[in-house]
C-alpha cells in the first residue's frame, strides 16, 4: 500500500470538519462576548468619565479580567472547545492565552517560568501587530508624501 492509496482510505474514514456547526457556534458565542463587552462600555460611559472613543481601554481590561477568572477556574478551556474562534478572537482569547501560559509555567518560578513564558502563545500577536502597524503607517506616509492619498 503506497502513500496515495493510504491517503484515500484515511480521507474516507476521518470525519469531516463540521464547518457550518463550527461557524454558527463561533458566531453566537463570539457575538455574545462582544455584546457583554458592549454592556460594559455603557457601564463605563454612564458611571465613569469615559466617552465612546476612550471607553475601549477599560472595557478590554475588564474583559481580560473576566477571562482570567474563567481561565483560572478551568472554564475557558471548555468554552474554547465549543466556541473555537468565537472565544479565541475576542480580547478574552488573548487574555486566556497569556493567563493560561502564566499559570502553566508557575512551577518554573516567577522569573524564568511566568516571566519568560507569559507571551509564549500571545507573543506572535504582539509581534505581528507592531510590525504590521509599522509597515502600514510607513506605506501611508509614503503615499501621502507622494500626494496619492490624504491623512
Amino acid at each position: 500500500m503506497d502513500q496515495q492509496q493510504y491517503q484515500q482510505i484515511e480521507d474516507k474514514i476521518t470525519p469531516p470538519t463540521p464547518y457550518l456547526k463550527n461557524i454558527i457556534k463561533a458566531f453566537l458565542i463570539g457575538g455574545l462576548i462582544c455584546t457583554i463587552g458592549h454592556a460594559i462600555t455603557y457601564f463605563y460611559i454612564i458611571f465613569f468619565d469615559f466617552t465612546e472613543t476612550t471607553v475601549g481601554n477599560p472595557t478590554a481590561a475588564t474583559m481580560v479580567f473576566l477571562a482570567m477568572l474563567l481561565t483560572g477556574f478551568g472554564l475557558y478551556r471548555k468554552l474554547g472547545q465549543v466556541a473555537g474562534a468565537g472565544s479565541a478572537v475576542p480580547v478574552t482569547g488573548f487574555g486566556n492565552a497569556v493567563v493560561s501560559a502564566a499559570i502553566e509555567h508557575k512551577t518554573e518560578g516567577l522569573v524564568l517560568g511566568v516571566g519568560g513564558n507569559i507571551f509564549k502563545l500571545a507573543g506572535s500577536v504582539i509581534v505581528f501587530g507592531v510590525a504590521s502597524a509599522f509597515f502600514v503607517a510607513l506605506i501611508k506616509l509614503i503615499l501621502v508624501s507622494m500626494g496619492v492619498v490624504e491623512w
Binding site: G80, Q81, V82, N96, A97, S100, I103, E104
Partner: peptide, 13 residues
C-alpha cells in the same frame, strides 16, 4: 500542545 487552561478547539480526531 498548549497550556492546560488554554481554550483551543480540538477536532474529533
Amino acid at each position: 500542545r498548549y497550556p492546560i487552561d488554554y481554550g483551543g478547539q480540538k477536532p474529533e480526531t
